[in-house]
């Protein structure tokens, strides 16, 4: 069956495979952002974190020969940017949204600046796990060549949900996010909690970036991110700050992004620009449908500036 054509059946397969391939950065960024927002702060800078993670991960993998070291460094670079965000936001009169935009710019700029020497070289890639070994079809096998990072993301989501709901840490985080005053009265250090939440969120986003450069599409260049980081931030809002819903939302997005090319490969080439805008239209439509001007969104942390 090697190299056999799947015809129209290829479209759902490509959407499924695309969902898995394309969704991982969305997943990591949205999980990280979910954690940060639960503490009552929004970090729009994750777009910059993602790009920085992609660059630092690729550079590290190239220099050390170990892609997993790249993933780690990408995460650390991400938490560094997250820490910076949290430290500036802890100052008086500082708007977290503005700081996010600033870090988006700084992260992207630094990544482009430092990443110039790494556009050319090829770094070792993260190995994929062949879940499709049972299939005789090359396409199915390839679609099920799943990167371990995707699985880590999948496992992380219920873990985060559980952690937020039942652990002491989760409780503290949610109290800080719901009412800074109450948390202060209970003796918690709000800024420290938020710093940790933002640094952890940055770590996830950095790892998501390393997926872009070390797995799919698996190369470092300056056009690598087409707004995945910022879209993932929007995604958290319609996933209602629920890590497990973030998984579904990310998969939906990955699939929507794969639809355009998949349709074209079977001959539907009309209006491809509009197909390519599908993920953005989808996010906006879902946000319009699920928001309300009268009451707060279910699950929204009360301290969060975007929903106030």
């Amino acid at each position: 069956m090697d190299h056999a054509s799947l015809g129209w059946w290829g479209v759902p397969l490509a959407v499924l495979a695309g969902a898995i391939r394309v969704s991982t950065p969305f997943l990591f960024v949205s999980l990280g952002e979910c954690l940060t927002e639960k503490s009552g702060r929004i970090n729009l800078g994750l777009e910059g974190t993602l790009v920085m993670g992609a660059m630092s991960g690729y550079a590290t993998a190239y220099l050390t020969g170990n892609p997993w070291a790249g993933v780690l460094v990408a995460g650390l670079a991400g938490s560094l940017l997250g820490t910076l965000h949290a430290m500036i936001c802890a100052l008086e009169r500082v708007n977290d949204i503005a700081v996010g935009i600033a870090l988006m710019l700084l992260g992207t700029g630094l990544a482009f600046f430092l990443g110039k020497p790494f556009i050319q070289p090829q770094a070792p890639q993260l190995p994929a796990i062949p879940f499709g070994w049972w299939s005789s079809s090359a396409q199915v096998r390839s679609a099920l060549d799943i990167n371990p990072l995707f699985l880590v993301g999948l496992a992380l989501a219920p873990l985060l949900l559980w952690g937020l709901r039942t652990t002491r840490w989760g409780m503290v985080l949610r109290i800080v996010g719901e009412s800074a005053e109450a948390a202060r009265a209970m003796g918690y250090q709000i800024n420290r909690v938020r710093l940790l939440a933002t640094a952890a969120g940055g770590f996830f986003a950095g790892v998501g970036g390393s997926f872009l450069s070390l797995s799919y599409p698996g190369s470092w260049n300056e056009r690598l991110s087409s707004g995945q980081g910022i879209t993932a931030v929007a995604l958290v809002i319609f996933a209602r700050w629920d890590p497990v819903l973030c998984v579904w939302a990310s998969l939906l997005f990955g699939g929507a992004g794969a639809l355009g090319p998949a349709l074209q490969s079977v001959g539907v080439t009309q209006g491809y620009h509009l197909f390519n805008a599908a993920p953005y239209v989808l996010t906006l439509a879902i946000m319009i449908a699920t928001s309300s001007s009268r009451h707060r969104l279910a699950g929204a942390p009360a301290e969060l500036s975007v929903t106030r």
């Binding site: 319009i288 001007s293 975007v306 929903t307």
Partner: peptide, 27 residues
């Protein structure tokens, strides 16, 4: 208007609308 009548966050919606506007331009 989305902010006023649907409570949609204007930062994110204005960014998404930008991506859509660029697609419309290209189309």
């Amino acid at each position: 208007a989305l902010r006023q009548w649907r409570g949609v966050n204007e930062t994110i919606s204005s960014l998404l609308l930008t991506y859509i506007a660029i697609a419309v331009l290209n189309h």
